[in-house]
């Protein structure tokens, strides 16, 4: 009981300390330099003043993030199934997957703008590219790590390849898939933001958070810039939270990672 209380108190205490230090730095700065670090109250004020544009931008970014993330989950999963078919397929495709992953987004962004135009499409594609790799790598690993004994069991039943995939390999790869999904969920809002920053436009009545960040920055609205960061962070929490919930639904009844210690 006391440890549970401590677990709640400790982060709260740390938060208080950090806000105090924050104010301390703000006050320590020369008055004309204080714009460099707005106070939490000023940032809350920015939420009030720019609430509407921030909200719209958040929704636009969430849309791009969700499209890219969802697409990456679906295509990444199917791609992983293809990769799991044989080591020859993996050996053939992995180098190109690596090249895709190694190419910096800030180079890809202008090319994408050239191809599909700035805005939601580019943002979604960039998010897709960022989410794709961890999903493919994790899911593939899961699909090829099936318990040897279970493979033997299916061999004993003389099941076909398709039945083995559907009833054995895919279910046993689910924990890996969800690991990939969790990583991708933390990356998706950041990916959408970066995509928006580099390949966004004012579509959707003011664009996404990245586009807004450019505007706030050019208008020297620094508290609003901090508010944008907070919104992006919240978006990340929502994405991760949703995946954690999904993962719980799919795995908690059977997977050891949800085994309660008190059992």
């Amino acid at each position: 009981m006391s440890t549970r209380l401590l677990r709640l108190l400790a982060p709260a205490l740390l938060g208080t300390l950090m806000v105090t230090a924050w104010y301390g730095v703000h006050l320590w700065l020369d008055t004309e330099m204080r714009f460099l670090l707005p106070t939490p109250v000023q940032i809350l004020g920015a939420f009030r003043d720019n609430g509407e544009s921030l909200g719209r931008a958040a929704l636009n970014t969430a849309e791009g993030a969700l499209l890219g993330f969802g697409g990456a989950a679906l295509v990444g999963f199917l791609f992983a199934v293809v990769l799991s078919l044989s080591s020859l397929v993996r050996a053939s495709l992995y180098p190109y997957l690596m090249i895709l992953q190694m190419t910096p987004i800030i180079i890809i962004a202008p090319i994408l703008v050239l191809w599909v135009g700035a805005g939601l499409k580019s943002v979604a594609i960039i998010t897709f590219l960022i989410c794709f790799f961890p999903l493919v790598v994790n899911t593939t690993q899961g699909l090829i790590s099936t318990d040897r004994n279970l493979v033997e069991l299916f061999a004993m039943w003389r099941t076909g390849r398709w039945q083995q995939l559907v009833h054995l390999r895919i279910p046993s790869a689910l924990p890996y898939f969800f690991t990939g999904l969790r990583i991708a969920a933390t990356l998706a809002p950041i990916g959408a933001l970066v995509g928006d920053y580099t390949a966004g436009n004012s579509d959707g009545n003011g664009g996404g958070l990245g586009f807004q960040a450019i505007i706030y920055s050019s208008q020297a609205k620094y508290p609003a810039l901090f508010a944008t960061a907070a919104v992006t962070c919240a978006l990340g929490f929502i994405f991760t939270g949703a995946v954690v919930a999904l993962s719980w639904l799919a795995l908690h009844r059977w997977h050891d990672s949800y085994e309660r210690a008190d059992r």
Binding site: M156, L174, R253, W254
Partner: peptide, 14 residues
Amino acid sequence: LAFVFQEPTLLPWL
């Protein structure tokens, strides 16, 4: 034919 392995080899998700 049916085979009972050394390990229970049950599918944990079922």
